[in-house]
Design a binder for these strands. Structure first.
Length: 288
DNA sequence: ACGCCTACCTGCTTGC
DNA sequence: TGCAAGCAGGTAGGCG
């Protein structure tokens, strides 16, 4: 799926293009896209007539803030995309939800694999950290993200704050980076990229990392995510921005899906292994 | 509470 | 050419 840089790209596009738009109507063609417990018909009735105040991102979700304070969350998961279509653009057989805007455009939620979920919540609670119980039965939008870890690109995400989280964590570092309660927004592409950049082996136990390694990893995570945003995200098959166009970040990746190709640092072949069911790419010579 | 594994879906690529 | 298996950006939920 889209990871942090891809979701951030979509959110910024939408902020530019549909801020202030009014949703005249919505059509849901795959019911399970609408997140429990809201029935799809209720969702449509609730969203009809709403006006978009602002769009941003939390973790890997797009947040559409409405003028009445409610917030629509869009979790794109593996193949979700939010695309603004001008009037007259051909129908999309993979559009699962279509929002008709009052100005004649459409906001289309496209999702080939149908894993993505759209929710509608009362506002509030986004700034507080919250409890896991709240995350299990969300009421306010903040509850949805109550169990999530810190935003890696936020000002408050310091090395010290990152380092604290490593205490007594025996888990291997790669799966830990994918754990959204440890750090939000990092996915399979950028986890591999950050570890390569920091020269840390994906199988290392988290609590075995030295201060210097944690510092390198902190910096690497922020660097690869920012680079991904600058290139409008990494596209392999499905990911596109709200303009419907792929990003160019995939061209600059150092290890992800570069199995057997030479490491950019030492020239030895990049290895691929499966770790907790996820493909993991690394250089066994320069990642220790 | 943690950690590991499966299920959820469809389309594309690969190998016989 | 055809067909089956393998693969994919994620994460709830169930098990031990």
């Amino acid at each position: 799926m889209p990871e942090l840089p891809e979701v951030e790209t979509v959110a910024r596009d939408l902020q530019r293009w549909i801020r202030g738009a009014t949703i005249r109507d919505a059509t849901v063609s795959w019911d399970r896209t609408i997140r429990h417990p809201l029935p799809p018909e209720r969702f449509v009735a609730e969203i009809r007539g709403a006006t978009v105040r602002r769009i941003d991102r939390r973790a890997k979700s797009v947040l559409v803030h409405l003028t009445d304070g409610r917030v629509m969350t869009v979790a794109l998961r593996m193949t979700g995309a939010l695309i603004v279509a001008e009037p007259g653009v051909a129908a999309d057989p993979f559009a699962r939800v279509i929002f008709s805007l009052a100005d004649g455009r459409e906001l289309r939620y496209r999702d080939v694999r149908k894993f993505g979920r759209i929710g509608l919540w009362e506002g509030g609670g986004l700034r507080r950290s919250g409890t896991k119980a709240a995350a299990k039965a969300p009421g306010r939008v903040g509850d949805v993200f109550a169990a999530h870890g810190p935003e890696p690109l936020s000002r408050s995400f310091t090395v010290a704050r990152f380092a604290e989280r490593f205490r007594r964590r025996t888990k291997r570092i790669k799966p830990l980076l994918l754990d959204q309660s440890f750090i939000a927004g990092v996915g399979n592409i950028y986890a591999d990229e950050a570890l390569w950049r920091a020269r840390i082996h994906p199988l290392r136990a988290a609590d075995s990392l030295s201060e210097d390694e944690i510092r390198r990893l902190h910096r690497s995570i922020r660097t690869v995510l920012r680079q991904g945003i600058a290139d409008r995200g990494a596209s392999f098959s499905d990911y596109v921005g709200a303009d419907g166009q792929p990003g160019s970040a995939a061209e600059k990746l150092k290890v992800y899906r570069r199995t057997d190709q030479p490491c950019y640092r030492c020239g030895r072949p990049i290895r691929r292994m499966v770790l907790d069911t996820r493909a993991t790419h690394f250089c066994e010579h320069c990642q220790k």
